[in-house]
Computed example of a mutant assay.
Amino acid sequence: MQVSKAMSRDVRIASPDQSLCDVARIMADCDVGSVPVGEGDRLVGMITDRDIAVRAVALGKSPETKVREVMTSDIKYCFEDEEISHVVQNIGDFQLHRLPVLNREKRLVGILALADIAATEGPRAAGEAVSGILSGAHQGSSARH
């Protein structure tokens, strides 16, 4: 099945010039831990609750700090015409819970979440992605010690 059949098209997008406080409210309203950051019609980053905690709060930055100062610019994404079975492996490798979905013109068209994979491909496919995320997290934590 293609990503376009499973993804959510209802995506809130943050601006790089919005404050962290604004984006935290978006996350709370949507009950998500990450929001794509767009400028014009292009995806320029992702902002996560972890970015806010580690790159802002832990460093004493203000809630009025601009998203561009703490967002992740190295964006991992998939294309809407890719097969979900291929994307499942990438989600695990990238250790992501939500992946922006682009069309071939590289315009944001949706978000693919683990819940979307579970709903369309079943719990086994979602479990494969989670397994990749967890094994990467364990590798990362042991590498830091």
Rank of each mutant, 00 (worst) to 15 (best):
Leu43Asn: 03
Val67Ala: 11
Val44Trp: 10
Ser73Asp: 02
Val54Met: 15
Glu64Arg: 11
Gly92Leu: 08
Met46Asp: 08
Glu64Gln: 12
Val101Thr: 05
Asp51Glu: 04
Ile52Asp: 06
Met46Gly: 06
Asp49Arg: 07
Gly45Leu: 00
Glu64Ile: 04
Ile47Lys: 00
Asn90Lys: 15
Val87Lys: 02
Cys78Val: 09
Ile52Glu: 00
Asn90Asp: 15
Gly40Trp: 07
Leu43Lys: 08
Asp81Lys: 10
Ile91Leu: 15
Asp93Trp: 08
Pro100Ile: 08
Leu99Arg: 06
Leu43Ser: 03
Gln89Ile: 14
Gly92Glu: 08
Gly60Phe: 02
Pro63Ile: 09
Ile84Lys: 00
Thr48Ile: 07
Glu39Phe: 07
Val54Leu: 12
Lys76Arg: 14
Ala58Trp: 02
Pro63Gln: 10
Val54Phe: 08
Ile91Trp: 00
Phe79Ile: 11
Asp41Ser: 07
Val88Glu: 11
Phe79Trp: 12
Leu59Met: 09
Asp93Val: 10
Ser85Pro: 00
Gln95Pro: 01
Asp51Lys: 09
Glu39Met: 09
Gly60Met: 04
His86Trp: 12
Pro100Arg: 10
Arg50Trp: 12
Ser62Arg: 14
Leu43Gln: 06
Phe79Tyr: 15
Val44Thr: 10
Gly38Ser: 02
Leu59Gly: 07
Met46Gln: 02
Asn90Ala: 14
Arg98Leu: 09
Lys61Cys: 13
Lys76Ala: 15
Asp41Met: 07
Gly38Glu: 03
His97Val: 07
Arg55Asp: 02
Lys76Pro: 06
Glu64Asn: 14
Arg68Asn: 02
Met71Ile: 04
Pro63Met: 08
Arg55Leu: 09
Thr48Gly: 06
Asp49Ile: 06
Asp49Cys: 10
Arg98Ile: 09
Val54Asn: 04
Leu43Ala: 05
His97Glu: 03
Asp49Ala: 04
Thr72Asn: 11
Asp41Gln: 11
Asp74His: 13
Val101Arg: 05
Asp93Lys: 13
Leu43Tyr: 09
Val67Met: 03
Lys61Leu: 15
Arg55Val: 02
Gly45Asn: 01
Ile91His: 08
Arg50His: 03
Arg42Glu: 12
